[in-house]
């Protein structure tokens, strides 16, 4: 692979909840500008993995490198501002905010480098006018909404959106932070076939046109196998296989994990 450090590197990540080991010594790397899927049966630890990467909780052991830099101790908002964005399995929009406002929330960190500038902004700029930066931010947010085909809903409250559109708003919101890597937790869940097809196209364009790395957790195997450049398989918190989609699909361990082994039957 390339000489540059991989965008994300997991070294022996272990996460326990009480006596239950959700992730056990997980190693893998995510290369830049690829769609990298993480699959595995229910309870394999996929969402836990996302929570550890985004900093919602720390791991008991192991370390996490983002662009070669150790981020074990960085708080969630710091990680978001460094370029790690995510969406949620159960969509978490700000229901009382409009679609545009939802997207703009994640521009917040990028445009407030310090406490002082935030206070200065609140005191000197906010009461009088929208600064050039504010207009630029809104334009960029609108561009993203157009990219995802939901620009018509800009002033709708998130609570009033259709399900498929809610997913897209979450993706737009993650994109607004200008991420280097996006963690998408089951983006196709609950989508109908045409919505899934649309999602497939969007994710491909994100990788090819915007150069964003996508780490994808997904149960829709057609989508995963058609879309991914690389697949990592987890089972009971352990990595059991990785490689190109075709190779993983025919891996006996993976088949056993999904279907059970002969002995068990």
């Amino acid at each position: 692979m390339s000489a540059a450090a991989p965008i994300l590197q997991l070294d022996g990540i272990t996460k326990k909840f009480g006596g239950f080991t959700a992730l056990s010594d997980v190693h893998f790397t995510v290369e830049e500008k690829v769609i990298h899927a993480v699959i595995g049966p229910n309870g394999a630890g996929k969402t836990t993995l996302f929570n550890v990467i985004s900093g919602m909780f720390g791991a008991e052991a192991g370390s996490l490198l983002f662009k070669g830099e150790n981020i074990d101790r960085a708080k969630p908002h710091k990680r978001a501002n460094m370029g790690i964005a995510r969406t949620f399995q159960n969509i978490r929009l700000f229901e009382d905010l409009s679609v545009l406002e939802n997207v703009q929330v994640s521009q917040h960190g990028r445009h407030f480098p310090s406490i002082w500038s935030a206070v200065r902004h609140a005191i000197f700029h906010a009461p009088f006018s929208r600064g050039a930066q504010e207009i630029e931010m809104e334009d960029y947010a609108m561009e993203l909404l157009e990219f995802l085909g939901i620009a018509h809903a800009r002033d709708t409250n998130a609570a009033d959106l259709a399900f498929g559109e809610r997913r897209l708003v979450e993706i737009a919101r993650a994109l607004a932070a200008n991420p280097a890597i996006m963690l998408l937790d089951e983006p196709a869940a609950g989508m109908n076939p045409s919505e899934t097809e649309n999602l497939d196209e969007i994710l491909t364009r994100l990788r090819d046109e915007k150069g964003i790395t996508i780490l994808l957790v997904e149960h829709d195997m057609n989508l995963v196998m058609g879309l991914s450049d690389y697949v990592t398989v987890l089972n009971f918190g352990e990595k059991i296989a990785e490689g190109a989609p075709e190779a993983v699909q025919s891996d006996p361990d993976v088949i056993a994990a999904y279907l059970g082994t002969d002995e068990e039957i």
């Binding site: 969630p76 908002h77 929330v105 994640s106």
Partner: peptide, 9 residues
């Protein structure tokens, strides 16, 4: 939680 994960301090 969601706000923090989106980069809000």
């Amino acid at each position: 939680e969601t706000a923090a994960l989106l980069g809000v301090n």
